[in-house]
Design a protein around this nucleic acid. Sequence first.
DNA 1: GCCGTGATGGGACTCGGTGTCATCACTTAG
DNA 2: CTAAGTGATGACACCGAGTCCCATCACGGC
Lengths: 197, 197
Amino acid sequence: MARWEPNARERLERAALALFTEHGYDATTVAEIADRAGLSKSTFFRHYADKREVLFGGQNALADRFSEAIRATAPSATIGACLAAALESAAPAFTSARHGLALQRRAIIAANSELQERELLKRAGLCSAVADALRARGADDTTARLAAELGILAFGTAFARWATPENQQPYAEIAHTALRDLQACAAALGAEPDIRA
Amino acid sequence: MARWEPNARERLERAALALFTEHGYDATTVAEIADRAGLSKSTFFRHYADKREVLFGGQNALADRFSEAIRATAPSATIGACLAAALESAAPAFTSARHGLALQRRAIIAANSELQERELLKRAGLCSAVADALRARGADDTTARLAAELGILAFGTAFARWATPENQQPYAEIAHTALRDLQACAAALGAEPDIRA
DNA sequence: GCCGTGATGGGACTCGGTGTCATCACTTAG
DNA sequence: CTAAGTGATGACACCGAGTCCCATCACGGC
């Protein structure tokens, strides 16, 4: 595809991660990122719409994975099974090899609210992708939205637990327990006496 | 309190809402907003940390209302009742008198992803406020987080239904049904057979 | 060897956002 | 009544994100 050095995006992401970790997100200039990647500011913005976006390249692929995983489930599968399938489909992105990078990225985002906003937007994107996929299976709107929210909540919990310095457990296991915890919780809340003021 | 014209913030918010509606968010300059409000760019940033923030002044107050409403519930109240109390406490902010402004604001935000990001951040703030309040009542972490997420989801649904041109129903009723719908849904999802891949 | 295509670099420009300093309105002490 | 103090403001300079436009260079096909 690309000519010259074909790894432009990858180089930019590595450079950004390194500089953000070294000097912080705010203190790092787009020009500096581009320089370290051997590119120019113009080229950076040709690859990423935003300075923030350089940290969220993978997030976009996740939405597709989730949708596809749900679309691939048997028509008889329960909604819970669909969510489980979606969360499992993300496993390849969270191997132990990427654990270090995930920690670095997490620390950067935690230190900057601009980046937290972007992460929430990406998460909302995941949410609507899942909800759409569920609706396509025939779930009604409210159920699809709630189930998607639940699924993404479980995903968020699982990811947060996985991306911890002490963690040694593989992502798949963590995701599984997170999902079951939430299911139990939902049952308990749903079983409460009717809500009256 | 303030001297000169004491309505600086209010004037800025009105001016911003008007200009955003007229020319769009992106095409409106902070200097233009300040001009129309009879102030300067410097003063704008003294009142709002951000250009976006001028649309989200009320959101901060909501978090306090929610926390306070939950803290004020009887110790015997169920979690569902706490959520209901929180959502009801927001009613004064959503009177029919403010319906028009809410519609305007909603349209502006819907047209700009920067503003959607900010709204998600504010919503996340509401979420952790509610979760904190529930934890303070003794709820365990997972339950508090899920319940808060559920409550804010219901709030989001209710607000979306309220802030519609055709809507005539008062916010309180809408919030009540949104909450019950979600509770029923949670029960259904929780009652599903155990989640296995 | 020539030309089209596409990735790149460079520079000019706008605007959001920060920081500093002077100014003005109003208050209070004397 | 005046002088000092306080707080909101305005004017200005400055930096960096993001946009636009145009020149350039590498590679493939002819």
